[in-house]
Amino acid sequence: MKNKRIAALAALVLVSAAASAHPQTGGAHTHGFFDGFVHPFTGLDHLLAMLSVGIWSARQSSARWLPATFLGMLLFGVLTGVAGLTIPGLETGIALTVALMGVLIAVAARLPAAMGAVMVGAFALLHGNAHGHELPAAASAMGLLAASALLVYGGRVLGQVSPALALKISGAAIAATGVMLAATV
């Protein structure tokens, strides 16, 4: 079991290392299912945020619905982006969601259920809005939701099987990455 945990964490590190935040410039995105599916894996900010929501939710009491809340609000956020709603400071806000989720994991914070849902929903709204601007087609939105579900629920599994110390260290690394991303926006 310990080797499986190490392998899972190593895989996440390798995937994260290969990712870079928004690698395409100038609107070079296409808009199919595959493009939407791949997108969360190619942006470090989105990858870490979605994994973090899952990891953190696994350590919350009575919070099995937090991943579903994130996914529902992610879809709502996509719709706001497609509709043209612009959120000031969006990229900085997204980076800060990564930092805050990392801190919550690092300190093993437990929040009241309603507060956790509002926070996770707000984070998903930001991420979804960015995706709605970048990938406005319905097919890409479905791909995005499928990949996001894999990442959030995969993070939840990691949160359930990983030792507390490994999670705290990972949370600190995620928080530091979020701060770095915010500083480079």
Rank of each mutant, 00 (worst) to 15 (best):
H39A: 14
V152Y: 14
G54T: 11
F70I: 00
K168M: 15
A83M: 10
L79Q: 01
M73P: 00
A147K: 05
G116E: 06
A99F: 11
R156E: 00
R59S: 00
L96E: 03
G132W: 05
I105W: 11
A21Q: 11
L90Y: 10
A175Y: 04
N129T: 13
F37E: 05
F70Y: 15
A58T: 09
G102P: 10
G155R: 06
A138H: 10
L9W: 00
G132D: 07
A106E: 11
A95L: 08
A138E: 01
Q24C: 05
G128T: 02
V13N: 01
A113C: 08
L165W: 15
G81T: 07
I55C: 09
G171N: 09
A130Y: 03
F33G: 04
M142C: 10
L66E: 04
R156Q: 05
G102V: 12
A130P: 05
P23R: 02
T97Q: 04
H39D: 13
T80L: 15
V161P: 04
A11T: 12
A130N: 06
R59D: 00
L150E: 00
L100M: 12
L12I: 11
G159W: 08
L181R: 08
Y153T: 09
V53Y: 14
A183W: 05
A11N: 05
H127A: 02
S62H: 12
T25Q: 13
A149M: 08
A122L: 06
A21K: 06
A147W: 07
T86W: 12
V98H: 09
H22S: 12
A21C: 12
A146Y: 12
G77Q: 02
Q160Y: 09
L71D: 01
D45M: 01
L125P: 01
L144K: 06
P112T: 03
L51I: 15
L158H: 09
A130W: 02
G43Q: 02
V103R: 07
R59W: 03
A95G: 07
G116Q: 05
G116I: 03
T184C: 05
M115F: 09
E91M: 12
A182F: 01
M50T: 06
G155Y: 14
V78Y: 02
G102R: 05
A95V: 09
S57V: 01
G143H: 05
G154K: 14
A124F: 01
K4R: 10
H46R: 09
M115E: 03
A138K: 13
H31P: 03
G36L: 04
G143M: 04
V107I: 12
I6L: 06
T97S: 11
L44N: 05
L66Y: 08
A141I: 03
A182W: 00
L48I: 10
G84F: 15
H22E: 13
V161Q: 12
L85K: 02
A21I: 05
A109N: 10
A117C: 09
G81P: 04
L51Q: 08
S148Y: 07
G93E: 02
L167C: 11
A10K: 00
R64F: 15
H39V: 04
